[in-house]
């Protein structure tokens, strides 16, 4: 996780959530890319953990996005969140 970007709260919240639901928290990284007034957050998880993060019919991923966007509003930015398998 990159420090010092404009989406600190969102990145911290996203990292906490994903580490809390995967089997292998050590493998979780959140990469922040500043792109003007939008910030992209790329989440990478260890092998086999992507399913847990996405959830049935994408429900968990949708919940993660909802909560992370709420956090981003505290940072005053819009965020796009991508989940990636390593």
């Amino acid at each position: 996780m990159t420090v010092g970007t404009s989406a600190d709260t969102a990145a911290a919240v996203l990292t906490h959530i994903v580490r809390s639901i995967v089997d292998d928290p050590e493998q979780v990284t959140v990469e922040t890319t500043d792109d003007g007034d939008r910030v992209r957050l790329d989440v990478r998880v260890g092998p086999g953990d992507l399913g847990r993060v996405i959830g049935r019919r994408g429900r968990t991923a949708a919940s993660i996005r909802t909560v992370t966007r709420a956090a981003a509003s505290k940072d005053g930015v819009e965020v796009d969140i991508e989940f990636l398998d390593d």
């Binding site: 959530i17 639901i21 089997d23 959830g55 919940s63 909802t66 909560v67």
Partner: peptide, 18 residues
């Protein structure tokens, strides 16, 4: 209450399912 519902969902994943 939409964010609350999402948070509850995630607590369930983190605590019950895991």
């Amino acid at each position: 209450g939409r964010t609350l519902v999402a948070i509850q969902d995630l607590v369930r994943v983190a605590a019950q399912r895991r």
